[in-house]
């Protein structure tokens, strides 16, 4: 439980950080909730840690042009408790409150979680349902891409070596939008065995603008477009919800581990999709 030797740098600007990260042996450190345990087990052995936590400006949450811009270094507990996030994007706040335990939420960051892309992380469900975008900085470059393009495979993203996530952009939700995150916790780690986030609107007795994000089921989080299509325009009866949720795992190569087989995960994905949609529907006005 002792890491290998490493150098440590704590730059105060993004530019400095990107300069340091140009070294292929360097690795960015945000909250350290995934990286530090891997280093202690010597499963990861970066030559240098570039600690991002002293960079001003990566810890802000602001509203801008109908979107919330959340700095990459904002912790889960800051998101959970931010009045701005709670009122403008309650799905993200609710999801953050389900992550790990209090200590993890106090240290772990949204940017770190997205960059690590653990298949069982909670955020992807909400972020896919919110059609989040991610701002990425590289040496002399900056780009904004949808989460769907960032996420490649389990633990793998489209980030180029030396690139950093700087900001997560989610839409400001209308007060009438209904959202919910429903999850089965893995009892040891608190990760999602399966987690489903739903957002939807309701007008004239019909459901619209449905978005469903799923985590834990496959190699990465994903948007369940087939479920959305089937539900869009329906009245949201129990039967309609069940029918839509039934396809959530179609075409997904489901994960399996000690805690849940692939079959069980596929089943849970349906159950929690139903629950998330029902809860979102109850909250929509």
């Amino acid at each position: 439980m002792i890491p290998q030797n490493f150098d440590y740098a704590a730059p105060s600007t993004i530019e400095e950080a990107l300069e340091l990260l140009a070294d292929p042996e360097a690795k960015a450190l945000a909250g350290g909730m995934s990286l530090i345990p891997l280093m202690k087990l010597r499963l990861a052995a970066p030559g240098r840690l570039v600690d991002l936590r002293r960079i001003a400006g990566l810890r802000e949450i602001r509203q801008d042009d109908g979107a919330l811009r959340i700095g990459a270094l904002v912790t889960h507990s800051e998101i959970e408790s931010s009045p701005l996030v709670r009122s403008r994007c309650p799905l993200l706040a609710e999801t953050a409150s389900h992550i790990g335990d209090l200590q993890v939420r106090n240290a772990g960051t949204i940017g770190g979680s997205i960059a690590h892309n653990d298949p069982a992380a909670d955020y992807p469900a909400a972020l896919f349902a919110l059609e989040a975008k991610v701002k990425v900085a590289g040496k002399g470059t900056e780009r904004t891409l949808p989460l769907e393009e960032l996420v490649v495979d389990a633990m793998v993203t489209a980030l180029e070596p030396g690139e950093l996530i700087t900001e997560v952009i989610v839409p400001v939700e209308a007060a009438s939008t209904g959202t919910s995150y429903q999850k089965m916790r893995q009892p040891a780690s608190g990760f999602a065995i399966v987690g489903v986030a739903a957002r939807l609107e309701k007008s004239n007795g019909r459901i619209g603008s449905v978005r469903v994000g799923v985590t834990g089921l496959g190699p990465s989080g994903f948007r369940a477009r087939r479920v959305e299509e089937l539900l869009d325009g329906t009245a949201g009866s129990d039967g309609e919800i069940r029918e839509a949720a039934a396809v959530v795992a179609e075409g997904v190569e489901a994960n399996a581990d000690l805690h849940a087989s692939a079959d069980y995960r596929r089943h849970l994905a349906q159950v929690f999709t139903v629950r998330a949609i029902r809860a979102a529907l109850a909250r929509a006005s």
Partner: peptide, 23 residues
Amino acid sequence: LYEEAVYDENGQLVTGELMDYAV
């Protein structure tokens, strides 16, 4: 409800950390 020390058929302890062994 939760705990079990699981060895696989080759004798590897697969609940080797608190990430997988649920107290």
